[in-house]
Design a binder for these strands. Sequence first.
DNA 1: GTCTATAGATTGATAGAC
DNA 2: GTCTATCAATCTATAGAC
Lengths: 191, 191
Amino acid sequence: MGQGTTRQQIVDAADELFYRQGFEQTSFADIAKVVNISRGNFYHHFKTKDDILDAVIQARLDRTQHMLADWEQEGATPKARIKCYIRILLTNWSMIKDYGCPVGTLCTELAKLNHASRAEANKVFTLFRVWLGNQFKWLGHAQDADRLAMQVLSWSQGVATLGNAFDDYDYVKQEVDEMCDWLDALPVGTA
Amino acid sequence: MGQGTTRQQIVDAADELFYRQGFEQTSFADIAKVVNISRGNFYHHFKTKDDILDAVIQARLDRTQHMLADWEQEGATPKARIKCYIRILLTNWSMIKDYGCPVGTLCTELAKLNHASRAEANKVFTLFRVWLGNQFKWLGHAQDADRLAMQVLSWSQGVATLGNAFDDYDYVKQEVDEMCDWLDALPVGTA
DNA sequence: GTCTATAGATTGATAGAC
DNA sequence: GTCTATCAATCTATAGAC
C-alpha cells in the first residue's frame, strides 16, 4: 500500500485526493485511510494542512517540469511538441471527465478561498505558458508567442470544463482534432 | 438587511456565498450572519443544506432565462445578441477575477463532490448552449449551430479561468475583442 | 416564524507514552 | 517514527419553548 517514505506517501495520497475531492473537502482522516497511518502521526511530518498543500503543489511543479522536458525529447518539431500538450485532454480523459483539469480546478478553488498558496498553484499554469510560448517562438512567432500560448491554454481549459460538465468524450475528441488542425494551418515564420 | 421573505433572503445570501466561497465551504453560520437569523431557524425553511443548493440553482436558472430573454430584446441581430454573452466577461470582471465564472466553478465543484444536484447545475450551461445555438441557426448555421455554441461557451470558460488565475484584465479584454472579431468575420448564410 | 439549547459527528491540531 | 487519547472548535441537524 504505497511506496517511499511516509512523508512521500502522504504527499502522493494528498495529491490525488486534493484533485478528486478538492483541497478543503479532503480531511486528514481521508489521507490517513489511504496511507494507513493514524491522524496524530501527520504532525510529525507536517506542521499544518497548508504545509501538505505546499508540498503537493511542489510535487506537481516538479512533475510538470519533467513532463515538459520529456515532450521536448519526444516531439521532433515545435508543432509536434505542442500536440503533446493538446493530447493530454484525451490521455487524461478518464480523470478529467470526473474531476476536471487538475491545474485549473485547484487554482479556482484556491482563488475562492483566497488561499495564501494561490500564487504558488498558479505557477503550474505559468510552466505550461512559458513552455508553449517557447514552442511558438521556435515556430517563428516571437511577437505573438505568449498570446498564442495563452490561446492554447485557454482553449484546453474551456474544453476540459465543458467536457467535464457534459461528460462528452466525442466533443473533446472533436475539439482536440480542431486544435491540431488549427496548429497545422498556423504559418511557420523564419524567426 | 436584505429584502423579501426570509426564505428568499436565505436563497439570495446562499447564492452569493456559494459563488464566493464555494458550496461546501459555506456553512449555515455564514448564511445566518448575512440574513441575521439563528442557525436553528434554517430548518423551518429548508430541510437540508442540499435543499438550499437546489433552491439556489433554481434561482440561477430563472435569472439566466430572464437575462437571455432580455438579450433577445436588446440585440437587433443574432450577432449583436451573441456579443451580449461575450461581454459578460467584462461586465462581471470584478467578480470573475476573484471567484471565477459562477456557472463553471459550481459545476466543477459538484463534479468533484459527485453531488446529486450536479445535473441540475449543468442545466445553466445548457440554457446558454441552446440559446447560443439558436442565434447561430438564425445566422444560417443550422448545421453547425451547436458546435459553434459550444465553441463560444468553451472560449469564454477558458478565458474566465485564465483571467482569474493570472488576474489579467488586459488579456480578457483582448480575448473579448478577438471573439467579437471572429464573430464579425463569420459568414452569414441564408438558412 | 423565530428563538435557545443541544445532540452527535468531524474537523485540525496537541500531548505524551512507547 | 508511530501510536492513543484528547482538546477546542465547527459542522449539520433536531427538539422544544415562546
